[in-house]
């Protein structure tokens, strides 16, 4: 379960309804994947800074959780700088590697874009507690509770699967079959895990059914899932950032709709 535990952030974005966070992250990413230019990405990134600061994540947690983004952004940029579409002055050439004005510009745009999409997404998501999200999806979005709560309960089993996998591995060594055929063994072990997980899943389903689950979608909710001014504000902020970024890029003439 520890895999899914959200850091305890009570201030700032921590207490906002997860549904609003999900929606905001979606709005921002959708707007930013439509174009590949420097202007829209830098405008968005600039405007996101106050949002990130307000989120209330301790600095250490912030960098730890967003570390993958900080690695992915320069990594992707480097690749594009070396192999991206060539145009303008060429600075360096070696085998397939061509570093040019065009590829450098694309690389920079990619770098900014990954940060602009990745940072807010991570910050918004890491503070989402799965139970709260399920409450929100059930009560605010009104998704069928059978589906939402079934998925939530299933999530809890993932921790058990990790332990199962480990035991399966040790058991194969004990049974004398772990010396050869790594690929085949992996496949058979994966199948064994599948069998175990189906059994665990059906046991869990029985336990849930025994507590009156599944008869109908009609139920009460022990935890309220408030959706108020702060939630709307967060989503509006997201929309405003996205809108501003696109508008500025279009006015500056740098907006290039993907594929065109």
């Amino acid at each position: 379960m520890s895999v899914f535990e959200a850091p305890a952030v009570r201030a700032g974005v921590g207490s906002v309804n997860p549904v609003a966070k999900l929606a905001t992250a979606l709005i921002l990413s959708l707007a930013l994947i439509l174009s590949l230019d420097t202007v829209s990405a830098s405008v968005a990134l600039l405007l996101e800074i106050p949002l990130l600061l307000w989120a209330g994540l301790p600095l250490r947690t912030f960098f730890l959780r967003t570390l993958p983004v900080w690695i992915a952004a320069p990594g992707a940029a480097l690749t594009i700088a070396l192999y991206g579409q060539t145009s303008g002055d060429v600075y360096f050439r070696f085998l397939l590697i061509v570093v040019s004005d065009g590829s450098l510009e694309l690389a920079f745009a990619t770098f900014l874009r990954i940060l602009a999409v990745g940072l807010p997404a991570v910050v918004l998501f890491v503070t989402v507690d799965p139970t709260d999200l399920a409450d929100g999806l059930g009560q605010v979005v009104r998704l069928p509770s059978r589906f939402v709560l079934g998925a939530l309960a299933g999530l809890r089993l993932v921790g058990l699967f990790v332990a199962d996998w480990r035991s399966l591995e040790l058991a194969r060594r004990a049974r004398g079959v772990a010396d050869r055929g790594r690929v085949k063994r992996f496949a058979s072990q994966a199948f064994a895990l599948l069998v175990l997980s189906i059994r665990r899943g059906s046991k869990l389903a029985t336990a849930m059914e025994a507590r009156g689950f599944g008869a109908s979608n009609d139920r009460t909710w022990a935890r309220p899932s408030p959706f108020g001014v702060r939630e709307v504000l967060l989503m509006l902020t997201g929309a405003a950032i996205a809108g501003t970024a696109i508008t500025v890029a279009v006015l500056a003439g740098t907006w290039n709709f993907i594929g065109s």
Binding site: P130, L152, G214, W221, R223
Partner: peptide, 19 residues
């Protein structure tokens, strides 16, 4: 292990009542 449904103690006890 297969009877724990939710992540927090209070929520787990409440589950049947909600249904």
């Amino acid at each position: 292990d297969s009877q724990v449904i939710l992540a927090r103690v209070g929520d787990d006890v409440a589950f049947g009542c909600e249904n």
